[in-house]
């Protein structure tokens, strides 16, 4: 065992890593949407929204969330702030 693990373990235990990975895998399985498909979806959402609104594409977040066993597609799309941009 690497002695560095002693410090890393506190931050990210094997348990937490497994739980995190599993949470993501289950979300994609349940929604029947692969991570790659989700990225494509995100790009298309950005394209469509950009036609009507000015948005900051780098800050757009599209992900799957769950509530009990119910899946939800969550999109957070920050609008470009014109006043901030003017300064």
């Amino acid at each position: 065992m690497n002695w560095l693990n002693i410090f890393q373990r506190r931050k990210n235990s094997d348990r937490e890593i497994a739980a995190q990975r599993l949470r993501l895998v289950l979300a994609h399985d349940r929604a029947n949407l692969s991570p790659g498909m989700l990225d494509m979806l995100k790009d298309e959402i950005i394209t469509v929204i950009s036609r009507h609104l000015e948005i900051d594409a780098n800050k757009v977040e599209v992900r799957l969330t769950e509530d009990a066993r119910e899946m939800r597609l969550f999109a957070d799309i920050p609008l470009h702030n014109p006043r901030k941009g003017a300064i």
């Binding site: 373990r9 235990s13 094997d14 348990r15 497994a18 739980a19 599993l22």
Partner: peptide
């Protein structure tokens, strides 16, 4: 589980 090396039943 106690050593946080595997998923707990709660997880």
């Amino acid at each position: 589980v106690r050593r946080k090396e595997m998923l707990s039943p709660e997880d």
